[in-house]
Structure formats: structure tokens, C-alpha cells
Amino acid sequence: MSRDVVRARPDTPFKELVRLLEENDVTAVPVLDELDRPMGVVSEADLLRKSADQADPTGRTPIPHLEAWERAKAEGSRAEELMSAPAVCARPEWTVVEAARLMEAQNVKRLPVVDEADRLLGIVSRGDLLRVFLRRDDAIREEITGDVLRRTLGLDPRDVTAEVRDGRVALAGTVEHRTLIPVIEQLCRGVDGVVSVTAQISFRTDDARDTPTGTL
């Protein structure tokens, strides 16, 4: 997330909001209450409703039909009247996947990040989430082999190897139990920067069926 967040207050006037967006090269700002808790977000789209609601001096385009809530925003002059509310927020401990899913479900482009008291800590955008896929292959491989396979799962590095190319992870090796294989795959998919995971992993014991040897 970005910690240096441009912010507005409920009484920030329309022109000041436009200036904040322009001078800071951002497309939206969170609106905070007196305790620095996000109340909503004002975006360029929110502000553009005022322009869209104006009569066209050339007479070539009609004034668009607006719902009551859209009309109220178009007529607003302060942040609390213009913002989209309530604010859709994330927690600092969330994974990239959790944040991306919430953005998709709520159809928003950014999420204020708040602490346990709902105070603003930062903001994460779509660009921030995509930036994780620029992570170097060797850093991804090191996390998978060191953190996932060795420390989390207790596997010998010689049992399962991981090759990473352009974020695509290829796992190979042999483990004791068949049921461990989907666990390995799932944990590897959760590593930042991983695009896909394929596994060619054999098992010695089919603990799901209690039959020996095989390949998943």
C-alpha cells in the first residue's frame, strides 16, 4: 500500500477537491472524519457528475437523466455530499488475492487500508496489486523453497524442487503422502508474484485411499 495518502475532510469544498486531484496526480481521495476513519471516497467520476449535469451551451447534447442519488451528488458542493459511501476498506494483513477479490466484487479501483480502530493507514490501488507481479523470479523461488517447502512444510529441499520463470512455478519431486501435494500447490499460489503453478510430484503413500505408491 501507499502510506503517503492525499486525503480530504467532509467539509472540503468542490474546487479544493479538484485541486487535490490535479496537484497530486491522483484520481481519488478518501474522506476522513475527525478520528481519521474513512467515511467514503471522492473520485474523478464523482466530480464529473457536476459537469455532466450542466446544460450544453451548444445545445447538441441533452442533459442526461440522473437517479435521485446521482442528482444529489451533482448538486453537492462538499466532499461529504460528493463522495461514494461507505468506504470499502482493507486490512493491512490481507493478501493481494483478498484485496483483489474485494475490488472485483465491489467494482472499485482502490481500497483505503485501516487498522483495528478503522483509522487510515494507507491506500492500495489496482496498480499496487499488479506491481507484485514484477517481483523477480529468484525472489519467488527463494520464498517457495525456504519459507513454504522447508520452514512451513518441513520438507527436505532435495525432495521437492521449484523452478520459476516469468512468475510461472514448476514443482517436481517426491513426497511421502499424496494429500500433501495440493497443500504445496495452494501455498505456492499464495506467494507474491506467482502467476501459475504446475506440479509433477510423486507420492509414496496414497493416504487418501491407503494404497501404496503412485503419481498425482
Rank of each mutant, 00 (worst) to 15 (best):
S77W: 04
R136M: 08
T95C: 09
V41A: 13
E185C: 10
T12C: 07
A8G: 08
V114M: 02
V197I: 06
R49T: 05
V31A: 09
N107E: 15
P30L: 11
E81Y: 00
E81A: 05
V29N: 00
K50H: 10
V160L: 09
G214W: 01
V194F: 08
D128N: 14
P13V: 03
V108N: 10
V197L: 02
G173R: 05
I123F: 06
V191K: 02
P182L: 09
L155C: 02
L35M: 07
S196E: 13
T27P: 05
A99H: 03
R209P: 04
I63D: 03
C188Y: 01
D128T: 03
E16L: 05
D53S: 15
A28K: 02
E23T: 15
D137M: 10
D147E: 14
T27L: 10
T95P: 07
P64D: 08
L134Q: 12
D118P: 05
G173Q: 03
E23M: 11
L82M: 03
E93Q: 14
P38Q: 01
E80R: 10
V88W: 02
E75R: 08
I140F: 14
E34A: 15
P64V: 05
A105F: 12
D33C: 12
Q106C: 14
D210F: 06
L171R: 04
L120S: 07
E93M: 12
V124S: 09
H65I: 04
L82I: 08
D4E: 11
A170I: 03
T215P: 02
G190Q: 08
P157M: 02
V108P: 08
S202M: 01
D206W: 06
L149K: 03
D118L: 11
P30D: 09
A99S: 12
T205F: 12
G122A: 11
V108H: 10
M39E: 14
M39L: 15
V97L: 13
A45D: 11
D159P: 05
R158S: 14
L134C: 07
S77P: 01
L171A: 09
R9Q: 13
Q200A: 13
P64L: 07
H177C: 11
L102A: 12
V114S: 00
R110S: 15
D53P: 00
V191E: 03
S51A: 07
R110G: 12
